[in-house]
């Protein structure tokens, strides 16, 4: 990965134990997605991404990866990768 040059955006999540942040390049837009367009991770996805992604939403012209805040929790990441 390229070292970050510009100041990054940080998404802040709150879970039961406290807060944690997720560095992203930028925030695009806010979309409303429907559950009917959601599909679980394809089995062909490599294992590491299987653990991080929570399926995808089928938008009209592209796929939108779902991220599961629970799985991104730094405390749980380690266990997620073991699974």
């Amino acid at each position: 990965m390229e070292p970050a040059k510009a100041p990054e955006d940080v998404l802040v999540f709150e879970n039961g134990d406290g807060l944690f942040g997720l560095f992203v390049d930028s925030v695009g837009e806010v979309l409303h997605v429907s559950d009917t367009d959601h599909e679980p991770n394809p089995a062909t996805l490599e294992a590491r991404r299987q653990a991080l992604f929570n399926g995808a939403w089928k938008l009209k012209d592209r796929l939108l990866v779902g991220l599961e805040p629970d799985r991104l929790d730094p405390m749980r990441l380690a266990s997620a990768f073991r699974a």
């Binding site: 394809p42 996805l45 992604f53 089928k58 012209d61 796929l63």
Partner: peptide, 23 residues
């Protein structure tokens, strides 16, 4: 290019609205 979609490194094809893994 446009019909074969990718979820990171996994290639997928949207067959009648469902994602089908491609090999």
């Amino acid at each position: 290019d446009s019909r074969i979609e990718r979820l990171e490194n996994a290639a997928l094809y949207r067959l009648r609205g469902h994602l089908l893994p491609l090999v």
